[in-house]
């Protein structure tokens, strides 16, 4: 009798919990085409804070991208304005959402997509080593989109710049050095490491979105022995050839002159500030020479950019 009473209690408790979670799932249901809603909202707030139609180049991608390209340095050296819309572990579904928002207030001439994110899950499915959590996230939106609580009531904490103390236009400055000593990693081969179907689908959507807004899409691979290989280079090359998109692989560009003993922050995964300066200079020059970008340095309307450069002096951007 006691056992059956306890058994009913246990079943009752779990049933109650199930009903509550299902109910909450209705409240937490949302646009399923965004994975990391908070990073997307944060980046949207940042780009929305920029004056309308002032950005000429948009960089997208994951941490490889925001560690490698410094818009303030490009502005200093070449005069054009750019913004890094990369976020940590960015998926292409989020890239698309960020770009879609960006085109509402900006008219960039070029969208540069860093390719490391092509080898992530591109859709918004949950990825978790915990198979129960993965299952629950798939079937109950409250698990998948639980961090939307930050957006309830419109968000009571100001977003924008929250990832950065200083306004580096999306670039994240990293000064630490852990050398990479693994030697050559771009070993020539004909093998290509294909993307997932979702990646192809989102690449096509992003290309179409850029075309609709008269922006040129180009792909770039930043130097990274930990993440990049010739097989990946081949797959990207195949796609860009088929779609007539420009592609620069900095892993094969000797002019970038990366010294893996000093230019990486974490043993060949990301570039540090020294490496970023080299990658930024190369990309700045490439973009300036290949696209009709404007030199805004003497334009009084862009005084805010001059102020940003002055404010960043502490970090020796000019070195």
């Amino acid at each position: 009798m006691k056992i059956s009473k306890n058994f009913i209690k246990v079943i009752g408790f779990w049933l109650g919990l199930f009903v509550i979670l299902e109910g909450l799932s209705l409240a937490f249901n949302r646009d399923k085409n965004i994975y990391d809603i908070n990073s997307v909202k944060c980046k949207e707030a940042e780009i929305n804070a920029e004056a309308d139609n002032t950005i000429e180049v948009i960089f997208c991608g994951d941490s490889e991208c925001y560690s490698s390209f410094c818009p303030l340095q490009m502005y200093q050296e070449f005069g054009f304005t750019s913004y890094v819309c990369a976020t940590s572990a960015q998926r292409l579904c989020d890239t698309y959402a960020i770009l879609d928002n960006t085109f509402k207030s900006q008219s960039p001439k070029v969208v540069v997509l860093e390719t490391n994110c092509l080898y992530r899950n591109s859709a918004s499915d949950c990825e978790d080593e915990d198979s129960v959590m993965k299952f629950l996230s798939k079937h109950m939106p409250v698990f998948a989109y639980h961090s939307d609580w930050k957006n309830l009531g419109g968000g009571f904490i100001e977003r924008g710049r929250s990832m950065q103390g200083q306004d580096f236009k999306g670039f994240v400055l990293r000064k630490s050095v852990i050398p990479y000593t693994g030697g050559a990693y771009m070993n020539k081969t004909d093998i290509a490491e294909d993307f997932s179907d979702d990646t192809y689908e989102y690449l096509d959507k992003i290309l179409k979105l850029c075309q609709e807004h008269n922006a040129k899409l180009m792909l770039v691979s930043v130097p990274s022995p930990k993440n990049w290989s010739y097989e990946r280079h081949n797959a990207v090359t195949e796609w860009v050839k088929m779609n007539d998109v420009a592609y620069v692989d900095l892993n094969l560009e000797h002019n970038v002159d990366i010294d893996w003993l000093t230019d990486t922050k974490d043993g060949g995964d990301h570039l540090n500030f020294v490496g970023a300066k080299k990658a930024t200079h190369f990309m700045g020059e490439y973009l300036f020479n290949n696209y009709a970008l404007s030199d805004r340095r003497k334009n009084p309307d862009f005084k805010a950019w001059e102020d940003c450069v002055s404010a960043s002096g502490e970090f020796s951007l000019k070195d």
């Binding site: 408790f13 919990l17 908070n38 978790d128 080593e129 998948a144 639980h146 609580w149």
Partner: peptide, 23 residues
């Protein structure tokens, strides 16, 4: 039950897991 439901829901909603977090 109310207390333990609240505790579980706190973990479900405010837990640092999923998009934007690393376990």
């Amino acid at each position: 039950w109310g207390f333990w439901y609240a505790a579980i829901l706190c973990i479900v909603i405010f837990g640092a897991y999923g998009a934007g977090y690393t376990v």
